[in-house]
Amino acid sequence: MANGLTYQRTTSTPEATKQLASTLAPYLHPGDVVVLDGDLGAGKTQFVQGVAAALGVRTPVTSPTFNILLEYGEGRIPVYHYDLYRLDDRFQLEDIDYYSAIDGDGDGVAFVEWAEKFPEDMPYDYLELTVTVEAEGARRIVAHSYGARSRQLLCVWANDSKSRLGKCQL
């Protein structure tokens, strides 16, 4: 994880994870990409739920595992929630309009789960959030920036006192 900033926070409940996510929402701009890593059930979709709610999305946000892509357009900016878990080949990414959402020129923010399946198709600039399950159900969220825009995004998010992110070395 070279060439970027890394911050972390541990949350103790799903509501706390959503609250942390809500503190990121004010800083998101169209074209931003957030990659979510973590095991099944780690809380990736809960994080997206928190951001989407803070952006004004009223539609229930669910896991896109079986849909591959779910779009939420009624908030401050559109939310594109991708789940690449069920894809087998990188050429399937074209069928879901993946590249237009992650090229930095999109009209909304893209959240991508399981992007590590296609490392050669990762965007140049993205904020990576790794969610791991800790003792007694707590979630450790590690945020790392890749690229100038995501570095700026992580800086302002970490400086928001409500996020309570702590700098860490990995």
Rank of each mutant, 00 (worst) to 15 (best):
Y27D: 03
R151V: 02
N3R: 12
R140E: 15
V51T: 13
A158H: 07
T65F: 05
F118Y: 03
V33P: 04
T65E: 14
D88W: 02
E128V: 00
T6Y: 00
Y126H: 15
A138H: 09
G147Q: 01
S163K: 07
E71M: 05
C155L: 09
E120N: 06
D83L: 13
N3S: 13
Q152N: 03
A21E: 02
A148K: 05
L69N: 02
D103M: 00
R9W: 02
L20W: 07
G166D: 06
A143T: 00
V142E: 10
S161C: 09
I96K: 08
Q46E: 15
E113F: 10
A54W: 09
V34I: 15
D89V: 02
L70V: 13
Q169Y: 00
D95P: 03
E74Y: 06
G50E: 12
H29G: 01
E15D: 14
D121W: 01
Y80L: 05
R86T: 14
V35D: 00
L170A: 14
D121V: 02
V34S: 05
V142D: 01
Y7D: 00
V142N: 08
I141R: 01
P26T: 06
R90H: 10
R149T: 04
F66K: 14
A25D: 08
A110Q: 03
Y99S: 06
D121M: 01
G56S: 13
D97K: 04
V142K: 06
S145G: 03
T65Y: 11
L127N: 07
T130R: 15
A25L: 07
L28H: 08
T10K: 12
K167R: 14
A101N: 12
L20H: 07
A115F: 04
C155F: 01
L93H: 13
P119V: 03
T11M: 10
V133Y: 03
L55S: 13
V156C: 07
L129F: 05
E116D: 15
H81D: 08
G50P: 08
A54Q: 12
L84P: 05
L24N: 00
A148F: 00
A16L: 08
H81N: 07
E134H: 01
G106E: 05
F47V: 09
K44N: 05
A2S: 15
Q19T: 15
Y72D: 09
L170F: 02
D125Q: 01
R90W: 07
L69A: 03
G31H: 04
G31E: 02
H144E: 14
S150Q: 07
G41N: 08
G106I: 02
A42Y: 08
F66S: 09
A115E: 03
V57P: 11
R139P: 13
D32H: 14
T17D: 12
G108H: 12
E136T: 08
R76I: 10
D89P: 03
A25S: 12
A143Q: 01
Y126N: 04
G41I: 12
P14L: 13
A110P: 00
V156L: 07
L70K: 15
T6M: 13
Y126R: 11
P60S: 09
D125L: 04
T62E: 07
P14T: 14
R139M: 10
T17V: 12
R151H: 09
V131M: 14
E94G: 09
R139N: 11
A115L: 10
R76H: 08
G104V: 01
V142M: 02
A42L: 05
K44P: 11
A54V: 13
V156T: 15
A115M: 02
A110D: 03
P14I: 14
A110I: 02
C168N: 01
T23F: 06
